[in-house]
Nucleic acid binder design. Structure first.
Lengths: 341, 1352
DNA sequence: ATATTATCTACCGACAATATCAGTACATAGTCG
DNA sequence: ACTCTATGTACTGATATAAGTAATAGATAATAC
């Protein structure tokens, strides 16, 4: 007994999407599912619990369920117009609709620890968790920060990543995908690319605009061979293209706090060679690192050219620096308010 | 909740534009077909306007300043706002209001940049380069009229640079330049003055006869008369004039400028001119021959700086007793330099006790050595200045002696002030050197420990770098302008800042850079450092300031260099002449360095300092855990993020920070901006007043050329003389530091613990332990926030302590001194002291530390007011005077205890609202009470009289609102009204009514309304606080009552509605006026001036609105609201790019801010007027007067007098209907402005307009736009104003969509208010109309005369 | 002509985001007729 | 000698940056359809 999929006619009646975009075309979805072939990871889908964040109109959710019939499929959607839509379409389906805010950390504590409505299985981190999948759509232009915070949760092994290496299927603006997936020396290479490289194994699965592909690394594209669909397949049609990535956490072992400080500061002057840029790490950085980094070739490189391994190496030197600055005090206080009657 | 997209998609509306970063160095190439020129020629409007401005010989363009063309019929009323049509303004880049064409503004920027570059090149003697800049300037058409001044600058430099160039050659050059290079330019009288000066100096020994004909010829060529030539004192020196008058006898004394006439007169009969000329280096022999005790060598500028200040001979001669004249001439010179003996002589002639006598005999009255008490003391307890002038002054028994003392002190202070403003950097350097050498003697460790010694090291390391850079720049600049391609990037940059960098002594630049950076420690919210942007600009500005005062000093000593000796009387003459001279010099320097240049200069210097400044540091090797010693840069450039935006920061090393915390920082206060030792230079025009050598502007303009233009026009018109009068009274009030309070503060400070407002000094911050990494994100976040809060508190405490440190150090330096605060105005006309950190506008502590220098006997009413004052300071200021006196009298024991044991006793004074001022008052009261006859007590304590909600007082007077006037004590009453309590009562009533109707919120809140809850909201209501803002304020007050933050906020929201309702009800008429002001501002800022550039129409129908709200205060001060959209751009510097606003950008107004700003600004402009009027009057009546906006201060004995003045002036101010007057002014000023509005389609008029549009559309071959309509109306106006009758008649016949409205009587019937429901309206240009004034009530302001609680 | 969406949020003194990249306008040098 | 073009550079405007929406959330002016 499969769940009926909402059609574009119904979807297009909806007015408010809060800047998010959803792929509604079932054909494309099918292609994507074929490509993903998640059964490789989830050998027994009957054991699988899926958490769907910002499911929107629920097309993907329903199709997923129809295809794999997981043990539990929970949709977390709080935005009223979309929630109403989900209620109207899936009230009596096996899909669980939760009117909660995926943005709020406490949502998960309540859901998992207190109410125990959705309890994933904790699995050791030697493999991808094979009974827990998160699907999310964070295509809103202003919500990129949420993705970045989720990423850093991988590094902290908290939030949903306390249950092990959880796979995530994540819709995002294609510009975000481009930044995340940028390799060393590419124009879009930035701190978040390094974060992605450090904590995850991420693939581009699908994208809504062929032109966008030129911002990605061509070698990687060959390997990923993403599905390209049309802007007409998403709703609302207007706006910037979106992309779907598959994100698997990986193993890592380094001092995250110091690494965070080092990458953040170096990537500000990402086109300045290491032998010069090190001064921005603290008083006398240039002198120290120039004496510690023995590989002269490395010194000639710029931060934008560095792999994460190289950042880890620099971080190690940084932590060994007797005069290293206090990385906790790395912020400014813009708003001093005084005055009163 | 998920954040909605739109909140962060577009982060800012700032019109980001980048600077033309190296435009400063780019010269105009004489290519006549640059696009902009063509554009202008083709534009009939611009062409017309420029031709009209030149033909009318620079009389101000009527469209720029509509009021100028209005005849001045209302002159009988002395509050008339109309300006006389007498101004005669030539082209000046500032003198263009914003709305003139954009093209002219961009050229304005070019002119400014070229000017400052020209000036810089001339200073560095890069004459060829300067000449090519002249060529570029010559090509700017609007600049032609002023061009000769620039050429004169050049010629003057040329003359100085080539002293051996024969006058004939010089003449050839001049002729050649003006006939070939600059054909359209004519010489003026200054040019002639330069030639004369050159002639006189080229032939210093030549026979007079030879020179005479040449000079006579020049004099005959005069444009505006010989007098005009001779008034160029910046060119012609005293000795020049002397030769002309006494030797050549070509001119007579009467033709000289009045300021120097007396000097020449006294030189004439006896003096031998030969001496004057020979005497350049100061002849010692001459000195020795003089045998009068009093005759002094008058040493000036250049010479005095040469004098080594650590002269052993001078040390030796210190104890020479008065009256004994050493025969050794050299010794005499050393002793004599600054006229100390005169002063000492005078002082010792007064009645002094033996101790004072000894102090004075020992004290060196040498300005260079005893500027201020800035020497660090090892022992914090030792606050004694070497000599306490205040105590001596006070101890003198008679008025005559006091006068004599003050006059001698003044003579000494004149010199000290000069040193203070000019030699402070050198003084700092000397101190460093001294400390270094002392430390060196003690060993290397001491050098590291002693801050000054370290600074000296930095200084020495930095100096060669700067010198090298300067020589790079010089060689680059002196080369022939090579093509840019051959240059690398560094050199291209050098080309930009080089001319400026070479202007100032490298040593001075080092000192300035170091001091600035130390000063900026923990500013801008940076934990241990500062923002780079701030740092580079501050350094750049400081360098420029140094350059400016050097300039003034240099030209002063140039002109007066030959006047080397004479009696003290003569010295006074010279001093007067010099001060007149300085005024005119400062006034003339119109050139400012572009902000970009400042930033670049600053960054160059700072990066050098970063490079050399090192501190030795300690660290722990993370692996071996061993202590490691090393050396690290003291400063480090990096970045920090805030909300995803980068912020450049300059971090200071922890080691240095720790050292700074325990240091006395007086040295890094910008010495030019300390309080003054002598009376400030009186304000006589808009850029001359205040400090003697440092330029300051009358108005703190916000980089708005528009504000400057209006101010300048008013100033030149003599419209704001009464503003000057008031301001000068404020500046002339002498103060001194309250020694007793200072001792208490100092004790608390050295103790290091927190006390009242002073935070304790901490070295490390204590942070909560970090939670495990894998804690829930929410937990991690809370921890991060905690850390942030603690760190911010820490850093704000630190900067607070730093600020207090500055205040204290300044106070310490001025212990026993007589000091003055020069003032200027903010753009609304409110007065502020120029000196930052320590002044009477500061916090309670600063105020408590200041007392009047002059003392006055309490007399019959003084004691009463002193008691009232104390009560006020304790917060009991809304009870009747008798009760306040009773309050003080009931605490006599406490007062005694507080005064005698301020820290060891009960500390009653610390419970006051304003504890430090209360303490000061306790000290005085305690002394008074000891006296048998209190009336004889000499009081120095300023007593405050504060207006009760001054803003509302003005509103009530404006609206004639009886109810409101009663509430704010405009109506006589035996008890003062407490507005806040009254509002609270009203709110309470409202709540009770609501509660009865079953409103739960009201029920809960109804008993919790106190005066305090509503106070801030009532106060800020005048400033136009919004509903949201007020809610926050009330929530703050309510927060102790409710536990839940959310709950508290909800109740606050509810309560705010009622508070607003109550205020609106109570001050109904005030609100009507507020609304009227707001609406008028909105309409004005949404209106279009006709001759606006069509290009400001983006799509033909949507213009950029350019009109800001402008009005004139009752004192004649024009006020321009500077609120416009910001346009900032990135500027490349050595360290990073910085983001700064382009002062020449022409931006559309910010209508919202114009609207919300007008009500408070208008009211403030009135209270400022009231203050200045009162100040002037109090000055006239001989009172010492000070003000903090709406709080007026004077001696206790004079309070009654002052109160009468305050009331009289308030009445005088409000006798005129100011709102009506404002509306009339608006109507005049914005007469021909139009707005875009809706017209009912179903009218004749609409039909006519449609027809015109149809015709026009046919002609143009496209749809018409509003821009087209404006263009034609503009054309019509031009024709109407044309001097040619035929033009005028064409204009009269012309019909435009706007002209149709001329005959319309009842516009209201035609215009569609925004309630237009169907599409019956069409967009048209309507004449701008202002809303009707709300009706005025019956309150008669003259009843105020008897209201004793008006100010109390 | 309405509906969505960005922008405030009490005045003044007062104090500020930056690195990099793509595209274009402009200048220079060199070449050629 | 002069013009034209290729070439490189300087200038401008756009975009990304970090990563809980600053402590907060409703009116209102501006803009888009």
């Amino acid at each position: 007994m499969s769940i009926p999929i909402p059609g574009i006619k119904d979807i297009s009646k909806l007015k408010f999407f809060y800047g998010f975009k959803y792929l509604w075309n079932p054909t494309v979805h099918d292609k994507i599912f074929d490509k993903l072939d998640i059964t490789k990871t989830y050998k027994n889908p009957k054991k699988l619990k899926v958490l769907d964040l910002y499911p929107g109109v629920g097309v993907q959710s329903a199709m997923f369920y129809n295809r794999y019939s997981p043990q539990q499929y929970s949709m977390m959607e709080r935005r009223s117009s979309l929630y109403k839509f989900l209620q109207a379409n899936f009230k009596d389906s096996p899909l669980q609709i939760l009117k909660r805010d995926p943005y709020d950390w406490s949502t998960y504590l309540h859901l998992i620890d207190e109410e125990r409505l959705f309890v994933p299985e904790v699995q050791p981190s030697d493999r991808i968790n094979d009974s827990f999948l998160t699907v999310a759509n964070v295509t809103g232009e202003g919500s990129e920060g949420l993705i970045m915070q989720w990423l850093s949760c991988i590094g902290n092994k908290n939030w949903l990543y306390r249950f092990g290496k959880m796979k995530m299927l994540l819709w995002m603006p294609s510009t975000t995908a481009r930044k995340l997936l940028a390799r060393p020396s590419m124009r879009s290479r930035s701190k978040c690319s390094v974060v992605r490289e450090a904590f995850t194994d991420t693939k581009l699965i699908a994208i809504s605009d062929r032109d966008e592909l030129k911002g990605f690394d061509s070698k990687c594209l060959e390997e990923w061979d993403p599905i390209v669909f049309s802007a007409a397949d998403i709703w609302p049609t207007k706006g910037k293209p979106i992309a779907l990535v598959e994100m698997d956490p990986t193993d890592f072992d380094f001092d995250v706090e110091n690494w965070d400080y080092v990458t953040r500061h170096l990537m500000i002057l990402k086109r300045t060679p290491l032998n010069i840029v090190m001064d921005s790490l603290g008083h006398g950085g240039q002198l120290y690192f120039n004496s510690r980094i023995t590989d002269k070739e490395l010194l000639k490189k710029c931060p934008i050219d560095l792999t994460n391994d190289e950042f880890i190496y620099i971080t190690k030197l940084f932590t060994e620096w007797p005069f290293k600055p206090d990385i906790l005090m790395d912020f400014v206080d813009i708003n001093q308010t005084e005055h009163s009657g | 909740m998920l954040r909605p997209v739109y909140k962060s998609v577009v982060k800012t509306s700032i019109l980001q534009r980048r600077l033309i970063s190296s435009k400063g160095s780019k010269l105009y190439k004489p290519s006549p077909d640059s696009t902009s020129t063509i554009l202008i020629k083709d534009d009939p409007l611009v062409a017309a306007s420029s031709s009209s401005s030149s033909s009318s010989s620079g009389i101000i363009n009527s469209s720029d300043f509509p009021l100028f063309n209005k005849s001045n019929k209302n002159t009988t009323n002395n509050l008339s706002y109309q300006w006389k049509n007498t101004s005669n303004m030539e082209f000046d880049p500032f003198n263009k209001s914003h709305a003139s064409a954009v093209t002219s503004m961009t050229r304005t920027r070019d002119v400014m940049q070229l000017w400052s570059l020209l000036e810089a090149c001339l200073q560095s003697n890069l004459l060829k380069r300067a000449f090519s800049i002249l060529e570029s300037l010559y090509l700017i058409p609007e600049h032609k009229q002023r061009f000769i001044e620039d050429y004169n600058m050049y010629l003057d430099s040329f003359s100085k640079n080539e002293p051996n160039f024969p006058i004939i050659k010089m003449n050839e050059k001049l002729t050649n330049d003006l006939e070939t290079s600059f054909k359209d330019v004519n010489y003026n009288d200054k040019t002639l003055a330069i030639m004369i000066h050159h002639a006189l100096n080229f032939h210093p020994t030549a026979s007079s006869m030879l020179l005479s004909p040449t000079i006579s010829a020049y004099l005959k060529m005069s444009v505006n008369g010989v007098r005009d030539i001779l008034s160029n004192l910046d060119i012609l020196t005293i000795s020049d004039l002397s030769i002309l008058v006494n030797d050549l006898k070509i001119i007579s004394l009467s033709q000289l400028p009045t300021s120097v006439k007396p000097i020449l007169e006294s030189l004439a009969p006896s003096s031998t001119p030969v001496n004057n000329i020979e005497n350049e280096n100061g002849s010692n022999k001459m000195e020795a021959e003089k045998d009068s005790n009093i005759d002094q060598k008058l040493e000036l500028g250049r010479d005095s700086t040469k004098t080594p200040s650590l002269d052993p001979l001078r040390e030796a001669s210190l104890d020479v007793s008065v009256g004994v004249l050493p025969k050794d001439a050299e010794k005499l010179v050393a002793v004599d330099t600054i006229g100390m003996r005169v002063i000492r002589h005078t002082l010792l002639g007064l009645s002094l006790n033996s101790q004072q006598r000894e102090q004075i005999s020992k004290f060196k009255f040498d300005a260079n050595e005893n500027v201020l008490n800035m020497k660090p003391t090892q022992n914090g307890e030792d606050n004694d200045p070497p000599i306490n002038f205040f105590e001596i002054y006070n101890s003198l028994p008679t008025l005559e002696e006091k006068r004599a003392f003050e006059s001698a002190l003044n003579l000494f202070n004149q010199d000290r002030q000069k040193v203070l403003e000019n030699r402070a950097t050198e003084a700092a350097r000397e101190r460093w050197k001294h400390d270094f050498e002392e430390a060196k003697a003690r060993g290397d460790i001491s050098i590291e420990k002693n801050l000054n010694a370290k600074l000296w090291k930095w200084y020495n390391d930095m100096l060669p770098l700067i010198k090298e850079e300067i020589s790079h720049c010089k060689s680059l600049l002196s080369e022939k302008p090579v093509n840019k391609r051959a240059l690398n990037k560094v050199d291209t940059n050098r080309l930009g800042y080089g001319p400026y960098l070479t202007l100032i002594d490298p040593g001075k630049m080092c000192v300035i850079t170091i001091l600035e950076l130390l000063k900026l420690n923990s500013t801008g919210g940076v934990i241990e450092g500062m923002r780079t942007a701030r740092a580079v600009i501050s350094v750049g500005k400081a360098i420029e300031m140094e350059f400016r005062s050097e300039q003034v000093l240099k030209s002063e000593s140039q002109t007066f260099r030959d006047v080397n000796k004479k009696s003290p009387e003569f010295k006074k003459l010279v001093q007067n002449a010099k001060s007149v001279f300085r005024s005119s010099q400062i006034e003339q320097s119109k050139i400012l360095w572009p902000q970009t240049i400042r930033a670049k200069i600053g960054s160059v210097l700072i990066s050098m300092l970063i490079h050399v400044a090192k501190v030795s540091v300690q660290g722990i090797d993370p692996i071996t855990k061993a202590k490691v010693h090393g050396e690290a840069p003291a400063f480090s450039h990096g970045y920090q993020y805030h909300n995803g935006s980068k912020l450049g920061v300059l971090k200071i090393h922890k080691t240095l920070i720790r050292q700074l915390n325990g240091e006395r920082l007086i040295a890094s206060v910008q010495p030019q901006l300390l309080p003054m030792l002598v009376e400030p230079k009186p304000w006589v025009n808009w850029r001359s007043g205040g400090y003697h050598y440092t330029q300051s502007s009358l108005l703190r303009t916000k980089d708005s050329p528009e504000q400057v233009a209006y101010l300048k026009a008013a100033s030149e018109n003599g419209d704001i003389d009464r503003v000057y009068d008031g301001l000068n009274v404020l500046g002339d009030t002498p103060w001194t530091v309250n020694r007793k309070v200072f001792d208490v503060v100092s004790q608390v400070w050295n103790n290091g613990e927190g006390f009242l407002d002073i935070p304790s000094s901490q070295d490390e911050m204590v942070l909560p332990p970090a939670p495990p990494r894998n804690s829930d994100p929410s937990i991690l976040r809370t921890w991060k926030l905690q850390v942030k809060t603690i760190a911010n508190k820490f850093s704000s405490d630190r900067s607070n302590r730093c600020d207090t440190n500055y205040k204290l150090e300044i106070a310490r330096a001025f212990l026993g001194e007589k000091l003055y605060f020069p003032h200027n105005l903010d753009f609304r006309g409110r007065a502020y002291p120029l000196s930052p950190h320590f002044n009477h506008l500061g916090n309670d502590m600063s105020r408590g530390l200041l007392i009047f220098w002059h003392g006055k006997k309490l007399g019959s009413s003084g004691l009463k007011w002193l008691k009232i004052h104390l009560s006020n300071l304790f917060g009991f200021d809304k009870i009747c005077l008798e009760d306040r006196i009773a309050f003080t009298e009931s605490h006599l024991k406490d007062i005694k205890d507080s005064a005698e044991n301020p820290l060891t006793g009960d500390r009653w004074w610390t419970t006051a609202d304003k504890p430090w001022q209360a303490l000061a008052t306790c000290f005085e009261l305690n002394e008074v009470l000891k006296m048998d006859n209190p009336e004889e007590f000499v009081s120095h304590q300023p007593v405050h009289q504060d207006g009760t909600c001054n803003g509302l007082q003005h509103y009530a007077a404006l609206g004639g609102d009886v109810e409101g006037a009663t509430q704010v004590n405009l109506v006589p009453n035996d008890k003062p009204q407490d507005v806040y309590a009254h509002v609270a009562k009203l709110v309470q009533k409202r709540l009770e009514i609501a509660a009865e109707k079953g409103d739960e919120n009201a029920e809960i809140l109804k008993d919790k309304i106190t005066r305090k809850v509503v106070k801030q909201t009532v106060m800020t209501n005048v400033y136009g606080v919004t509903y949201v803002g007020a809610t926050f304020q009330i929530a703050k007050q309510l927060s102790p009552i409710f536990d839940d933050r959310k709950e508290s906020l909800d109740f606050s929201k509810y309560l705010t509605k009622h508070v607003f309702g109550a205020i609106r009800e109570l001050f109904h008429s005030a609100h009507l006026i507020q609304d009227w002001l707001g609406e008028s501002a909105k309409r004005i800022s949404k209106s279009i001036r006709l001759d606006v550039d069509e290009k400001s129409f983006k799509n033909g129908n949507k213009p950029d609105f350019m009109s800001s709200v402008i009005w004139t205060t009752p004192l004649g001060l024009p006020i321009v609201q500077p609120y416009r959209e910001e346009s900032k751009k990135q500027v490349e510097t050595n360290l990073q790019t910085v983001f700064i606003s382009d002062p020449f950008a022409v931006n559309p107004v910010n209508a919202r801010r114009q609207k919300t700003g007008l009500p408070p600004n208008f009211i403030h402009s009135l209270d400022a007027s009231h203050m200045l009027l009162s100040a002037a009057e109090c000055g006239k009546q001989g009172l010492d007067f000070a003000s903090v906006h709406d709080s007026y201060w004077t001696h206790a004995s004079d309070v009654d007098t002052m109160n009468v003045v305050l009331r009289d002036q308030f009445i005088k101010l409000h006798e005129v209907d100011l709102v009506m007057r404002l509306r009339e002014e608006f109507t005049q000023r914005y007469k021909s402005y139009v707005k875009i509005g809706k017209l009912k389609r179903a009218t004749d008029l609409a039909q006519k307009i449609i027809n015109i549009r149809k015709d026009l559309s046919k002609k143009l071959g496209r749809n018409t736009t509003l821009a087209d309509e404006i263009y034609f109306e503009k054309k019509r106006q031009q024709l109407l104003n044309s001097p040619l009758p035929e033009d005028r008649s064409i204009g009269e016949k012309m019909i435009t969509t706007v002209s149709l409205f001329q005959d319309v009587k009842d516009l209201d019937a035609l215009e569609l208010e925004n309630g237009g429901d169907e599409n019956s309206g069409m967009s048209v240009l309507l004449p701008l109309r202002l809303p009707e004034i709300p009706p005025k009530g019956d309150f008669d302001v003259t009843v105020l005369k008897d209201s004793q609680y008006f100010f109390s």
